[in-house]
């Protein structure tokens, strides 16, 4: 474990806490893409298949449980809770995320560490996580105004993988045989997708203005 990876995990955890706060405090999921949340639930379920077979550390196991349960709770709440469900932007959350799932699965069948069920699904989860934010970014562009908690949620979510990139650089420099090309390249694509969001977020912060993404 290094400080970059720990900062990344904490930033990721904060993003989830901000989203839970928004949904439970405001009893609203307006501005949140259910499709992105469903993709994240799929990412964690397919990535942490080793939860009960490989014990890395208490921290690792705990965080996996937190990510799986929180992502499922958010999807369940957005689909099930009548009060929250009413605020879901159903008519603009229309990105066809099934294509993302299919594309990532085909890619995982072609590019993986080992051709085993667990490794192919692990690669699938890495590729899917890289593109899972797309329905959310599309929804924010369509909805125009972005409320503070939603903006902070996306900001922390984007920042976490940027910390992981620093972690991979650090591990590459300090560990003899460290090569994680699948995670590194996907992580770069994932962070790059947030580039324009980061830019408009910085502009709105600098001008102390409301965050608006151009359509």
């Amino acid at each position: 474990m290094n400080i970059f990876r720990f900062a990344g995990d904490m930033t990721h955890l904060i993003s989830i806490l901000v989203l839970l706060l928004k949904i439970y405090a405001t009893k609203s999921c307006s501005g949140i893409s259910l499709k992105t949340q469903e993709l994240y639930a799929l990412v964690f379920l397919t990535r942490y298949l080793d939860l009960f077979t490989d014990f890395i550390s208490l921290y690792n196991t705990l965080m996996k449980l937190v990510f799986i349960t929180s992502s499922l709770a958010i999807v369940w709440c957005m689909r099930g809770d009548p009060a929250v469900r009413r605020t879901y932007d159903k008519e603009i959350d229309t990105f066809r995320h099934y294509f993302l799932v299919l594309g990532c699965f085909v890619l995982a069948l072609l590019l993986h560490e080992k051709f085993t069920v667990q490794e192919v699904l692990w690669a699938f989860s890495i590729y899917l996580e890289a593109v899972a934010i797309i329905p959310q970014l599309v929804l924010l562009q369509r909805s125009g105004n972005v409320d503070n908690l939603t903006g902070q949620y996306v900001l922390f979510l984007g920042a976490y993988r940027a910390f992981y990139i620093l972690n991979w650089i650090y591990r590459y420099l300090t560990e003899a045989r460290f090569t994680r090309w699948i995670a590194c390249i996907s992580g770069l694509v994932q962070t790059a997708l947030y580039a324009d969001f980061f830019y408009y977020y910085f502009i709105s912060w600098k001008n102390n203005a409301k965050l608006k993404l151009p359509a």
Binding site: R5, R47, D50, D54, N60, K64, F67, N167, R177, A183
Partner: peptide, 10 residues
């Protein structure tokens, strides 16, 4: 060795 095979990152 098995250590490398494990995905030790989240």
């Amino acid at each position: 060795n098995s250590e490398d095979d494990l995905h030790d990152e989240l």
